[in-house]
C-alpha cells in the first residue's frame, strides 16, 4: 500500500500554490492535513502527479472574529479550533462537531478546510458549514470567488471547486441573539467512525422561549451534507416543545434522499435522520435555556 510516484512541491505563498494549480491543472492536488488524501493515495485511489503542500501557508491559518462572522483559514488544524476560546465561544456548534471527528491524532493534523474540500458525505465539518450557511472563499491564480457551503457539495468527493482553485477560508455566521443553543448528534458504529447519520441544530429563542431562528441539517444519510433551512423556518415563532420538534424531525427525514451501504440501509438512515434530528433540536433547545 504505497502511493504512486509524484512530484512534491511546497509553495511559499497561496499565490504560488494557485499558480502551481493553474500550471498543472487536474494533475495537481493540494495536501493539507492529509488525513483522507494520504490513505487514498496509499491505495492508489488518488494518484496526483503533483502534490502541492499548503500546510505551512500562514495566510491559511488565521482565525478572526468580527461582528457576526467567524472566519477560519482553510489550513487551520481541527485541534486548534478545539483549543481556541474565541472559536468555541462564537461557534460552539463547530466545537461540538469536532468531538465526533476522528481521534486526537487525526484532529492534530486534519484541517477544517481539508475536511470540507474532501467532501465525505458523513463528515461533520461540512455539515456544520452547510447548516450555518457558511461562505467558502475560493482563490485561484487570478481571482477570488465565494460560494455558499450549501451550494458546494454535489456528491461524495464531488464539489463545486475547480482543479485550479484553493479553498482559502470559511466564513461562519455567528448568531448574536441572547439565547442561542446548539447540538451535534451522531450515530456511528464505533466512536470516531464515519457517521451512519448525524444531525446538528442551532436555535435562537426569545425570552418566552419561542424560536427566533433555527438551523438544522442531516449528514451521512445522503450523498452530501443536507442543510434543511425550510425546516428551520417551520419552527420560527413556535415554542420548541416536543410536538414542534417531532414535526420538524419528521419533515427533515422526509426531505432526505437516503442512501444504503454495508453498514446501514436507506430505510435505517431515514429513520436515524428523524431520530437524530429530534435529538439535536431538543438538545439545542436545552442548551439555549
Amino acid at each position: 500500500m504505497k502511493a504512486a510516484p509524484f512530484e512534491y512541491v511546497r509553495p511559499e505563498s497561496l499565490a504560488e500554490a494557485c499558480a502551481l494549480l493553474e500550471e498543472h491543472g487536474p494533475d495537481a492536488k493540494l495536501i493539507a492535513g492529509g488525513q483522507s488524501l494520504v490513505p487514498m493515495m496509499a491505495m492508489r485511489l488518488a494518484r496526483p502527479a503533483w502534490l502541492v503542500d499548503i500546510n505551512r501557508l500562514e495566510e491559511l491559518k488565521a482565525i478572526s472574529i468580527d461582528d457576526n462572522t467567524l472566519t477560519i483559514g482553510a489550513a487551520v488544524r481541527q485541534c486548534v479550533i478545539e483549543r481556541d476560546s474565541g472559536a468555541q465561544a462564537n461557534l460552539p456548534l463547530l466545537g461540538r462537531a469536532l468531538k465526533w471527528v476522528g481521534h486526537v491524532q487525526t484532529r492534530n493534523r486534519g484541517t477544517v478546510g481539508g475536511s470540507i474540500v474532501h467532501a465525505d458525505p458523513s463528515a461533520e465539518i461540512p455539515l456544520v458549514a452547510c447548516v450555518l450557511d457558511a461562505t467558502l472563499v475560493l482563490k485561484d491564480a487570478s481571482a477570488t470567488s465565494e460560494v455558499q457551503a450549501r451550494e458546494f457539495f454535489f456528491a461524495p468527493m464531488v464539489t463545486a471547486i475547480a482543479p485550479e482553485q484553493c479553498l482559502a477560508e470559511i466564513r461562519f455566521p455567528t448568531w448574536g441573539e441572547a439565547r442561542v443553543g446548539c447540538a451535534f448528534i451522531e450515530v456511528s458504529i464505533r466512536h470516531g467512525d464515519f457517521a451512519l447519520v448525524s444531525a446538528c441544530a442551532q436555535v435562537a429563542l426569545d425570552e418566552e422561549g419561542r424560536c427566533i431562528r433555527a438551523a438544522l441539517g442531516i449528514g451521512g444519510a445522503s450523498p452530501f451534507p443536507h442543510a434543511l433551512p425550510e425546516v428551520g423556518e417551520m419552527l420560527v415563532g413556535r415554542k420548541l416543545d416536543e410536538l414542534a420538534i417531532v414535526e420538524a424531525a419528521g419533515a427533515a427525514a422526509d426531505l432526505i434522499d437516503a442512501d444504503g451501504d454495508l453498514h446501514a440501509t436507506a430505510d435505517y438512515r431515514r429513520h436515524l435522520a428523524r431520530v437524530t434530528a429530534a435529538r439535536a433540536l431538543a438538545s439545542a433547545v436545552e442548551d439555549a435555556q
Binding site: 491505495m43 458504529i189 464505533r190 466512536h191 470516531g192 467512525d193 464515519f194 454495508l262 453498514h263
Partner: peptide, 23 residues
C-alpha cells in the same frame, strides 16, 4: 462481508470494525 458479486466489502479498517478502548 461480501458483496453479491463476491467482493470483500469490508477490506479496510474503515469497514472492518474492531472495538477500541471506547467500546
Amino acid at each position: 462481508a461480501f458483496s453479491d458479486n463476491g467482493q470483500l466489502a469490508s477490506q479496510t479498517f474503515m469497514d472492518y470494525l474492531m472495538p477500541s478502548a471506547m467500546e
